[in-house]
Write a protein that binds this DNA or RNA. Structure first.
Length: 243
DNA sequence: TCGCCAACACT
DNA sequence: CTGCGTGCGC
DNA sequence: AGTGTTGCCCAGCGCACGCAG
């Protein structure tokens, strides 16, 4: 059994101050995928950043300092790290791909569409290209894939507490929701929904008005596998006591 | 983003 | 070197 | 009169950077 965790940390330095290492030590995931690390390459090199014991670590950085970025920690060494060169993925350190033999891991931080749909075209291009990459693995090479991360999209009305009020807000624009539908229809399965059909389960809450306490949130983080791999998924859940 | 409110449409 | 104000992104 | 929709506006955090001391 392999436990894969996905976590948008909103600043790796920040979570280090909030007990991140202690949490990893007690929870012991096999693979831990992070998004929004907000680190620069020299932060790692210069040994100023503490890392969890017993894990190998892999990083992707945005060109812009203090912005975006992904990382994953793994107890076992992947068979290969697959290079991610397309600027759509690489310029902002949004995608990492690793071959774990039993499956291909894709750690991803999908773009925010922003107000007025400013980055929606970029996001739609990102999704299209990600789908191409996945199809290459799944259809051409007959591999299994696990795509996890912060998709910055609530898919349907039950995936956020205030669907009507947010129809014209980033994360719930109809275009991005439809893009995610297309993604799922292409043969990729939202594993959380295999186990839970009810609304009210969220992965992100606004800082405003103590939204988390009242569970006024959005489900924008996902673990997705190709259809053939579904039979290997034992569980998919949200760690609602992690902050 | 959320919550509140004002303006408005519909019945 | 440290702390603070400002700006940006979410 | 009651219901629902739309528009408006609003918090707080993390990090970079420039500057003061």
């Amino acid at each position: 059994m392999v436990v894969v965790i996905s976590w948008n940390v909103n600043g790796f330095r920040s979570v280090l101050k909030k007990g991140f290492l202690e949490w990893v030590k007690s929870f012991q995931p096999d693979i831990l995928c992070l998004q929004e690390t907000k680190l620069k390459p020299q932060d790692i090199k210069e040994e100023g950043i503490q890392l969890p014991e017993g894990y190998l670590h892999y990083w992707a950085f945005a060109k812009k300092p203090g912005y975006s970025g992904t990382a994953f920690f793994s107890k076992k060494e992947p068979k290969a790290i697959i290079p991610v060169n397309d600027p759509v993925f690489a310029d902002e350190g949004r995608v990492q791909i690793a071959d774990f033999d039993k499956f291909i891991l894709v750690n991803s931080y999908w773009p925010n569409s922003q107000d007025e749909r400013a980055r929606l075209p970029y996001k739609l291009e990102f999704i299209d290209k990600l789908l191409e990459v996945l199809n290459k693995f799944v259809k051409n090479e007959k591999r299994n894939v696990l795509v996890c991360g912060d998709f910055n999209i609530a898919h349907t009305e039950i995936d956020l507490a205030r669907p009507k009020e947010n129809e014209n807000h980033a994360g719930f624009y109809i275009e991005e929701r439809e893009a995610l539908t297309k993604f799922f229809n292409a043969g990729y399965v939202d594993t959380f929904r295999l186990f839970c059909k009810e609304g009210g389960h969220y992965t992100w809450w606004s800082y405003r008005t103590k939204a988390r306490e009242r569970n006024i949130g959005w489900r924008i983080d996902y673990h997705v596998v190709n259809k053939a791999f579904v039979k290997n998924v034992k569980r998919s859940w949200i760690l609602s006591d992690v902050y």
